[in-house]
Nucleic acid binder design. Structure first.
Length: 239
DNA sequence: CCCTGATTCGC
DNA sequence: GCGAATCAGG
């Protein structure tokens, strides 16, 4: 697989959106988690709340000199790493049946990218796992503190009907996203029919009125673990 | 164990 | 430029 513009765009979107490298790799398909990370770095998108980089030593000089040069090839290592528990190399799950055209409405799951600054959902990288509502894929969103009013969705006004705007007669692709259109994902990235809602947004929200209703449903805490990323792209994919 | 991202380095 | 191997923290 090569890094086409689309794939790179997808990578950026997801990476910036908070999706993990694994999720990105899985959605892109045909690439490993490492490939995604490597590419991300080469693209300059680096650093994000990395679990392994929590420490802020004033002396960054602390590297792994001894462990570096040698480990690459285990030169004189007497015993090889018995535990080569490398997780399965993401088998590219390409949609085999394309001709049948599956309904994308099955289950919207992915994220919808970082919304406008005014978006009710804050994208704080260090935010606390306060979960109270569910987003696109069923993943949980942040707490009320980050969400302002629970739901000021659509007051009165004549709201955009369910008919698509003329400007978005066709599918709204990843690259067509803007502050004006609903970013609710339809289907999954990487799939042939993946696109975004594209409706006119509910002013102040990243989604249209209809999807705001789905995005901001309150859901009280439960046994639900999984702090969820701010804007998880690879939401619980329905498989 | 699992997960995460970071880094290195041979290709 | 790419990504597997590896490292290292949670």
């Amino acid at each position: 697989m090569s890094w086409t513009d689309e794939r790179i765009a997808m990578l950026k979107k997801m990476w910036e959106g908070g999706a993990t490298a694994s999720q990105i790799a899985e959605e892109l398909g045909g690439v490993s988690r490492n490939a995604v990370i490597g590419k991300a770095h080469r693209l300059g998108l680096k650093s994000r709340p990395s679990p392994v980089k929590a420490n802020d030593k004033k002396k960054p000089a602390a590297k792994k000199p001894a462990a570096k040069a040698a480990p690459a090839k285990k030169d004189a290592a007497p015993a090889k790493p018995a535990a080569k528990a490398e997780t399965k190399p993401a088998a590219s799950a390409e949609p085999a049946a394309q001709g049948s055209g599956k309904p994308a409405s099955s289950a919207a799951s992915q994220q919808a990218d970082a919304g406008p600054k005014a978006a009710p959902v804050q994208m704080d990288q260090q935010n606390l796992p306060k979960i109270v509502s569910v987003g696109p894929g069923g993943f949980l969103r942040q707490g009320p503190g980050d969400q302002q009013a629970p739901i000021p969705p659509a007051p009165p006004r004549r709201l955009v009907p369910a008919k698509p705007s003329p400007e978005i007669a066709d599918k709204t692709s990843l690259l067509d996203l803007s502050d004006k259109v609903c970013r609710w994902p339809m289907g999954h990235p990487g799939e042939p029919d993946f696109h975004f809602c594209g409706q006119q947004v509910n002013p102040g929200f990243p989604y249209c009125v209809e999807h705001c209703g789905r995005a901001y449903q309150a859901q009280l805490p439960r046994g639900s673990r999984k702090p969820p990323p701010p804007l998880p792209f690879g939401g619980p994919r329905v498989r």
